[in-house]
Structures are given as C-alpha cells and as structure tokens.
Write a protein that binds this DNA or RNA. Structure first.
Lengths: 180, 180
DNA sequence: GGTGTCATGTAAACAGTTACATGATTTT
DNA sequence: AAAATCATGTAACTGTTTACATGACACC
C-alpha cells in the first residue's frame, strides 16, 4: 500500500494541486500519512510517469503558479483495482506498550504517573478527533452511501481511541485494587 | 522511540544473543517491529558504542559461535529514563480505511466482498493473537505486578482487534439495512 | 537429499520525517 | 514589523523491509 493510491483517491474526487493534497492528507486521519512535501511531490511525479494523472499549469498574478493534477481513465482503473484488492491488516504501533512491558522497575507512584500521562494524551486526542469530525473540512458527499462510509471511517478512528481510553482506565483501576 | 529501547528492555530481563532477540521480537505483538536481522544487529552495535551493553563471545562445537549481550548499569539507567519519558501517541495505520474512503464506486456486492475480506482477516488475527497469548512463549514473571502488566498488554492487543471486528460487523449491518 | 534450526551479518531498496529554500501577498 | 497563506520543490536523515550470503548439524 502506498500514499500514491491515497492521492489517486483524492484526485478521483476532485482535481487538486500538491498543496491542496497536502492539506487534505494532513487533515484526514483515515489517510494516516503526515502529508510532508517530499512524499507528495515525488508521488505526483511518479503518478505522471505511470500516466495515472495529467497536470495543467495555471499562472496566477499575486500568487505562485500552480499545477493542477487530474486523474486519467487509466488512473481511475488503477484506483478501482486497488480498492478491490485484499485489505492489509491494520497496524497498531503502540510504543507505550513497550514502555509498560519494562515498567515493573518503577515505584507505584512513578507507574501511576506514566499511566496518567498516557491517559491524558489519549483523552486529548479523542477530543481533537471529535472536534475534527465536527468541522469536517474535507469530505466528498456524492451519494448517501458515500456520506455513510465517511461517517463510519470517522467512527472507526474515534472508537479506536475510545477503546484505548477504556483500557488504560481499566489498567489504572486494576493497579489501585492490587495495592490495597 | 526506537527498537533499541525494546532491545534494552529484553536484555534487562535476560542476557541474549541477536538470534534470541529476533525470535522474542517476532513473537511479541507489543513490540511491533518485524524483528529483521538488519535492524537488530545494527542496533546491537550501536548499543555497544553507547556502552549500554557488553558482549561475550561463546564458542560452541557443532553450532556457530554466538555473542551474548548483557545490559550494563548505564544501559539500565537509560532504559529507566526512557520508560519514564512521556509516552508517544499510538499510531493506527489502517489502509483499509483509505480503501473504504473511495469504495462508493463499487457495486453493492463488491463492497460487501471487500468488507467480508477485512472481517475475515481481523477474525483470523484475533484468533491468532489469543492463541499466541495462550502459548505465552516469552514473558518475564518476576513479580505479581509484572505478570499483571504483561497480561494487560496482551489484553490491549486483543481488545484492539476486537474493537475493529465489532466496528466492521456494524458497518456490514448498516449497509444491509440501507439497501432494503 | 531436502528442509529446518542455530547464528551472524550485509546490500539494496523503499518509506517516511524534518528541515531548508524561495518569493509574493495578505493578515495581525 | 512579524507571521501566516499560497505554492513548489530539494537535501539529508532515519526507519524498515526483503533478500542475499555462509556454514554446520539434525531430522525426515
């Protein structure tokens, strides 16, 4: 899997510049990439090579000229093929679990602080995620089904953070129970 | 964060060779790295440079000689510092969500198949995870608290997959509801 | 005779991040 | 006067994966 298919997806929704793509990817949590320039501009060159997109330079006074990328039929076919391909497993990268694995060396209070620090970060992230969803800056809404799919994608992210929050609260309670 | 701290953690539990570390990391889901040679053997060289570990070559007849790595006091201090450091946010990389984002182009049956494919993979992964946990090949158990912590780490992984499974089943039901 | 385990390592490629660079305009 | 927005791109680095390479022994 690669960011190239994510870019093709966005372009299948609307023609965009690299700059637009960067903002959309940054804003999205479903598309988990950071949206850094290097990746985006390199991918666009590759997509041009593969003839999945075309571009058109638009000159503007009073701001830099921009390249508007548009998906081709070949690009649409490649996107559909990828959408239908067997999905990869989700990857959960939780550095915190590795910290916890070696946390038995800590004093009870230190461990409690570590857990609280994680809990706070997750709470914050959950709130930020829900706020992001409320604003819903970028979302195609071409059919009722598409609206529903995007809603479910947002729900997935929120439920992942929520699940993590419940787990960490449970861990804190279990620890308190054991110490008495 | 880095695999170096994960390695230091394992060495704080028991002195090991690169080969041992590889197997432990591969087996573990909390330590999410693939456990490939390149990373492990390079990390060990770096850890030696930093004086976080020492090694001792042990010659054996009838199998290749091995280097047994042992954590130093300096290494233990570095590990504790890292364990106490503010945890990073978990990263959820779900390529499937990006596929779903552009899945409105699919026919109802195609979409259903895509969802089923993901559901099956998650189910399978959940079962494998629980089986792994049942076997519990590698786990330090030096105090009741450590046993509890490792149990909670396993629970975290299982609950993440379980949460994903519930979500995808919910998505399938919502779709079926809308089509009638 | 082929496959698997033990054990170390390297090469090449791909993926991804941070920071740098430019330059005009608009907002605070 | 400083900071943000628009817009493109590059350089250097870190992280990660896949595959290759060697060699002895054990098991089927």
């Amino acid at each position: 899997m690669s960011i190239k298919m994510a870019i093709l997806g966005i372009l299948s929704w609307k023609s965009s510049t690299g700059y637009d793509l960067k903002k959309i990817i940054e804003e999205s949590t479903a598309m988990y990439w950071s949206g850094n320039n290097n990746q985006i501009y390199k991918s666009l060159v590759q997509l041009l090579d593969e003839e999945f997109v075309t571009n058109e330079v638009q000159h503007q006074d009073s701001s830099p000229s921009k390249k508007i990328y548009t998906i081709t039929n070949k690009g649409r076919a490649a996107l559909k093929e990828w959408v239908l391909s067997p999905p990869d497993l989700p990857e959960f990268k939780k550095g915190f679990l590795t910290q916890l694995a070696w946390a038995d060396q800590l004093a009870p209070k230190e461990l409690e602080q570590l857990i609280s620090a994680y809990e706070n970060e997750i709470s914050l992230q959950l709130a930020m995620q829900q706020e992001k969803q409320r604003r819903a800056l970028f979302a195609p809404a071409r059919t009722p089904r598409e609206i529903m799919l995007w809603q479910m994608i947002d729900d997935n992210i929120v439920s992942s953070f929520n699940n993590e929050l419940i787990w960490i609260q449970n861990l804190r309670k279990t620890l308190q129970g054991n110490e008495q």
